[in-house]
Write a protein that binds this DNA or RNA. Structure first.
Lengths: 336, 336
DNA sequence: TTGTCGGCAGACAACGTTGTCAGGCGCCTT
DNA sequence: AAGGCGCCTGACAACGTTGTCTGCCGACAA
């Protein structure tokens, strides 16, 4: 296994100085065409590959790399964000370190630290932590940070997210307006800001609708579709089962839909989910959801990050995108 | 904005030599506890962050980073691979550059070149190119490469994939055995090895089943669900419409299912898809698919890559995973 | 002819880190 | 007391690159 050739090797072959090779590689002016040709031949002969690590070390400028830390790159929501960020980054030649946090605070800290060591220019974060002040030193020393999907806490950083609370309220009001009073709520870990806000929206709507909150209808801390299925199944066994379900995240909605179908109640118990998901419109009945423009969210977040890296100054910006209720059938089922 | 402090700064504050700081940071032996404590205090005071770029430059060892180039990180198949690779990588502290190729050869070449410049240790590739010999120089100079999902061509590299041809044959034979003779085939770009192999399997099955191939039932070059929907819709308008559809990729299957549903034929035209997808079991009727163990594929590929990076020698290994036909209803519909 | 100027090329140091080696100090042995 | 050994510590060079500066050469003007 040969080792990669360096500018020094190229210089030796082309019989020029190392610096001249550097000039040719970087398309700097001040090299006569003849010499440049000589150098280029040598570069090709030796299959020269530029070493960006060394270059960046010397230049001390941007590395054209960012970190994108998401909840789970295999989840369609995170994946869509990643893809959107990748697309805006590619245009400027920026590459992306991607990683999943699985809501583990410690993993977030370790990954951030690791990526900082690798001199990333920016960080796009869907945080697992609920306090982001640990990043303030990094921001002070030049790291650009944009938080996506969740609120920033304890840090002056840009943020792109949706109004989860009002989105959830709209969903539950939709069910109330169809006559439901026994509305279940499925939620992820309450430590997740998004989940907590959606729960707050659920409570808001019940309260202003004059409906008492029944803890039997509240299932929180659900971490996946299967658990959501179980939760709904057991609620359906209650003496007074819920007549409608509001589910706080796409995976939970799929789990809830399965539970209803298996119980033969898909057409009699209403269902509204937060987050759209593939094939939501193809189920029977099609699933009513609170939709957010994930692609726009990712693109905006990516753009804001790149702008910050490019040097934009100014106070942190918070972009709160709207959500849309998409009625498809499941959410318009009346109570019995 | 202050600049990050270096070992030199720490050394100055702790009144020791730079090298002693290096020893403490790297947990090397040979520093008295007293001095080490002094240094650690200084490290904390200055919020020292290790510079891996400089470290790697000097050490000339592994950078503990790999590139993962997939078709589209937002596609559930690619995303699942990415996630599996991430999981095996994280264990060894390896970080992942992720990117989407969208079947564009030029993008693959550029990304590879960019990542090589960043000194990645390995490359996990779902190639857009059909000739991978351009990588042989990189392999010779120390890059480990594993190709996933598709065959390797012109390069001595490891590979993890499924037997697409036989999987497709099984799917079509399944339809034949239920009595179908007019079986449509939906496929992606024929330049994609996977798509071509599946088409070959389709043709194999028809031939050995004694069924003549009808070009009207062949729709190739379909790049997304919508196009697949259109293709199926127009086939259903034929004088002799197909009685069954075999779809060559998950997105196309979703598109086909939609077309059948919209035409009111979901229960009368059979459908089998290659690749499983979320909610395939929740549609009406549930969709019969050729399933592959994507998670295993990603994990294996990642492990092989990390082993190569760790120095495993020997000839390239090719792992061909089996596929499974999962009958769910849509594929068992008989012809009229 | 001399002085100057522009274009080109190379020597050198530096980015932040680590491997190598040499030196100093205290302690033990003879 | 002299020698030797082990433990710490630091000076130095090097990884591959690039910014700065100096110097050379030929051409042109005075």
């Amino acid at each position: 296994m040969r080792s990669r050739s360096t500018m020094r090797d190229v210089a030796a072959l082309a019989q020029v100085s190392l610096k001249t090779v550097s000039r040719v590689v970087n398309n700097e002016p001040g090299v006569s065409p003849a010499l440049a040709g000589q150098v280029r031949t040598a570069l090709e002969q030796l299959d020269y590959r530029h070493n960006l690590a060394a270059s960046n070390l010397r230049r001390g400028q941007h590395t054209l790399s960012i970190g994108v830390l998401l909840q789970d790159v295999a989840n369609s929501f995170s994946a869509a964000i990643l893809r959107a960020v990748e697309d805006v980054s590619r245009i400027r030649g920026v590459v992306v370190f991607a990683a999943s946090l699985d809501e583990e605070e410690e993993r977030e800290r370790q990954l951030v630290s690791n990526l900082i060591s690798r001199q990333i220019d920016g960080l796009l974060l869907m945080p697992a932590t609920s306090d982001h002040s640990y990043l303030s030193h990094e921001v002070r020393t030049g790291l650009s940070v944009v938080v996506v999907d969740r609120q920033v806490i304890g840090l002056r950083a840009d943020c792109v997210r949706v109004d989860n609370r009002s989105g959830a309220r709209v969903a539950v009001e939709h069910l109330l307006s169809h006559g439901h009073r026994r509305i279940a709520f499925l939620s992820d870990l309450p430590s997740i800001e998004t989940a907590a806000s959606r729960q707050a929206g659920y409570l808001d709507a019940l309260r202003s609708g004059g409906v008492k909150v029944d803890p039997d209808y509240l299932a929180v801390g659900l971490r996946g579709a299967d658990v959501a299925t179980d939760a709904v199944r057991s609620m359906l066994g209650l003496e007074q089962p819920p007549t409608a379900v509001f589910s706080g995240r796409n995976e939970l909605t799929m789990g809830a839909a399965r539970a209803l179908r298996q119980a033969g109640l898909a057409r009699s118990v209403a269902l509204v989910g937060f987050d759209d998901f593939t094939l939501a419109d193809s189920l029977e009945p099609a699933v009513t959801v609170i939709q957010q423009d994930v692609d726009a969210e990712g693109r905006l977040a990516g753009q804001m990050l790149l702008e910050r890296i490019a040097g934009r100054e100014g106070p942190p910006r918070e972009i709160v995108l709207p959500t849309t209720l998409v009625p498809r059938g499941s959410g318009e089922i009346p109570p019995p």
